[in-house]
Design a protein around this nucleic acid. Structure first.
Lengths: 197, 197
DNA sequence: GTCTATAAATAGATAGAC
DNA sequence: GTCTATCTATTTATAGAC
């Protein structure tokens, strides 16, 4: 049922995640789904065109995930908890290949690639969504808190990717949940922008 | 005075940091220092041999840096502060090319490269050194705190690299310093492994 | 839409003259 | 130690038959 174009995008998504963008070749993708490299160019004119399609696909998946979390957890604190737990949910993937967003952005930034901003839009989706949750909890510095939490999860992903230590992940997730819990009530003395989150 | 081998290693270090390992070619390095590609192989037999030399060079530089910090700051808290401030010191570099350790480890992990462990040794150097400082402050969970701080700085580096927002960096550095300050006295109610850092 | 064949550029790596 | 010349494989990309 799925078109060749869709299959190329799906396989490119998986391969770029597993091996990185620069290392993934047309040949790799073509071999994986059993088509010739020539046919390939009927669907995508350049390698960057594939990357753009992959990024768009990932953004759509992220939007869908955020919508799912909203329906599953009606309260902001529960939603933030869902976000933190993607680290646990995707534990083995992150240990093997890192965070799909962080590793792609790092690579594209290093290549000075024009699609970096598009890729970083995935960060922005989480940032805006998290900011909305912190706002709903009554925090005036919601955007700072959102960026802060985003940074915390990225750091955990990087070290998990490099060290591959599950105990570290569990510890840090517990710490993040605890941070979130102490933050749940409206602003007391903590504001992430100038004080201790 | 510096030998060709040294110049190759230095230039490879810079280029790998700026463009990534996979993207940096022998030609790039050779062009940059004005030698031919043929001469190149007299000093290094394979591309991986260059990478190994670059990693060794970086590890030596890191060891020297940690020793410098120890002489500059006699107290553990001040030394930890030095570590946090590398984010500020290398602000523009990190905005442009990310953390040299984190980005290289991410790339090598994705390539399933045998030198990943060697590259991750740079993390371990910081980890052990930070752990010693936390221990000196009387924290029984010093290694957890060291890994935690390492993760925090990596996350900040990733987002700074992707978003290039200096205000975010200043905010997070201040937050980290504050976290360090409230942590400075021997363990009160905070232990990073199970409670709120 | 899919294929084979091929172009054009670049990669890592080697041989041998100087 | 440094160079030029060359090999071999792989890359992105194109042309054209079916």
């Amino acid at each position: 049922m799925s078109s060749t174009r869709t299959r190329i995008t799906e396989e490119a998504d998986a391969l770029i995640y597993r091996m990185g963008f620069a290392t993934t070749s047309f040949g790799d993708i073509a071999d994986e789904i059993g088509i010739s490299r020539g046919n390939f160019y009927h669907h995508f004119k350049t390698k960057d065109a594939i990357l753009a399609a992959v990024i768009e696909r990932r953004l759509a998946a992220t939007r869908a995930l955020l919508t799912l979390w909203e329906s599953e957890a009606p309260d902001p604190a529960g939603r933030i908890g869902r976000f933190i737990d993607i680290l646990r949910t995707n534990r083995s993937k992150i240990m093997q290949d890192g965070c799909p967003v962080g590793t792609l952005c790092s690579e594209l930034a290093k290549l000075d690639h024009p699609l970096l901003d598009q890729a970083a839009e995935a960060f922005t989706l989480f940032r805006v969504w998290l900011s909305a949750q912190f706002s709903a909890l009554g925090h005036p510095d919601a955007d700072c808190l959102a960026l802060h939490l985003l940074a915390r999860t990225q750091g955990i992903a990087v070290l998990l990717h490099s060290f591959r230590d599950p105990a570290f992940l569990e510890r840090e997730c517990a710490t993040l949940h605890h941070w979130c819990d102490t933050l749940a009530p409206p602003p007391r003395e903590n504001t992430a922008c100038s004080s201790s989150p």
